[in-house]
Nucleic acid binder design. Structure first.
Length: 325
DNA sequence: AGCCTTTGACCAGCG
DNA sequence: TCGCTGGTCAAAGGC
């Protein structure tokens, strides 16, 4: 289809399939490398700063202004957490799904990522002594998964995101520069530690509505690849979801950018916390981001698999024309 | 009724 | 040119 011409952005979320939901930051050139670094993959496994402060620092210290996909400046990560995001303590649930979704070159937390879950997630507040959930761990630790070069091409676009629990992703593209510097530093052993795995237990939705329009068996894969389109009129965004032989989502690829706001009222209305999504929508808007989940909460189970990303890698790729970096 | 998933077929790109 | 594979379309059926 001619869509290709219109679609300049391709974001891929690759999930490494550990048994638990995790965030995987692939070893990749700058952008990803950066993510890996920040998430502890850079030097192996350390994530010294507290999760929240850590992330916050990324945005505050490094990116006072968060750019939305539309290049509109928004607020700092902290602000997002405190203001834009309606974090409901305890309430949580999946409501905030997709709050960060929207993505954009800067920060993306694909669907299913709720602030509350974020705050409560072991990923950010890991049990002091627990290796139990091990939210951030070198990919090798999670599983002897072979590197997937295809997943993180060397020409990664400037923007990348880290999928948190499959549905969540942090778009750290702009962290690149700093990471790059760090990466180039011989002292940082990024070497083959390509992925960092962060476990998050709550899936989320990116706030957009998706419709599955196709499915194809993939050679060598037990599970087929699914194709989804954003249901918004004229929205060219599409995504592909691939699964590993064990049925877990291994990769999600987004194509294009949403040319509309995150829907305030999600299809089916029920259950979807559209309000929360909407709020977050402002900043992540257009970034097609995440998008996982479709919509009905009640249906979580069916499509849920898609959302139940055990671990993930997110790939963003844009056509050269879109890389106004 | 509307929207979604499923599924087989079609088409294009590539080796 | 042929076969393979990926991506999309569209009808049918379900919720």
């Amino acid at each position: 289809m001619a869509v290709e011409d219109d679609v300049s952005l391709i974001r891929t979320t690759t999930l490494v399939a550990p048994t638990r939901p995790t965030i995987t930051v692939p070893h990749r050139p700058p952008a990803i490398e950066t993510a890996a670094y920040f998430f502890g993959g850079g030097d192996g496994l350390s994530l010294s700063p507290g999760p929240l402060s850590f992330v916050s620092s990324l945005f505050v210290d490094n990116f006072p202004d968060v750019l939305t996909p539309d290049n509109q400046r928004t607020t700092s990560f902290t602000q997002l957490l405190n203001g834009t995001m309606s974090v409901s303590p305890g309430g949580g649930g999946r409501s905030t799904a997709g709050m960060f979704a929207g993505g954009g070159p800067m920060f993306t937390i694909p669907s299913g990522f709720s602030p509350s879950s974020l705050l409560t997630s072991p990923m950010f507040f890991p049990p002091q002594s627990s290796a139990h959930t091990g939210f951030i761990q070198p990919r090798q630790q999670s599983q002897p998964q072979p590197q997937r070069p295809d997943t993180f091409p060397h020409h990664m676009p400037p923007s990348t995101s880290v999928a948190v629990h499959g549905r969540q992703s942090l778009d750290v593209s702009q962290v690149d520069q700093r990471a790059r510097n760090h990466y180039n530093n011989p002292g940082n052993n990024n070497n083959n530690r390509s992925y960092n795995v962060v476990n998050v237990d709550k899936p989320a939705d990116d706030g957009y509505n998706w419709r599955k329009y196709g499915q194809k068996p993939i050679k060598g894969c037990e599970y087929p690849r699914s194709y989804y389109k954003c249901t918004h009129v004229n929205c060219p965004v599409k995504k592909k979801v691939e699964r590993s032989s064990d049925g877990q989502i291994t990769q999600i690829i987004y194509k294009g950018q949403h040319d509309h706001e995150r829907p305030q009222n999600r299809r089916g209305g029920g259950g979807r916390d559209s309000t929360e999504v909407g709020g977050a929508g402002q900043m992540m808007e257009s970034s097609d981001d995440s998008g996982y989940r479709k919509d009905h909460d009640d249906d979580d189970d069916d499509d849920e698999d898609d959302e139940d990303l055990p671990a993930s890698k997110i790939r963003y790729s844009r056509s050269a024309s879109d890389y106004h970096t």
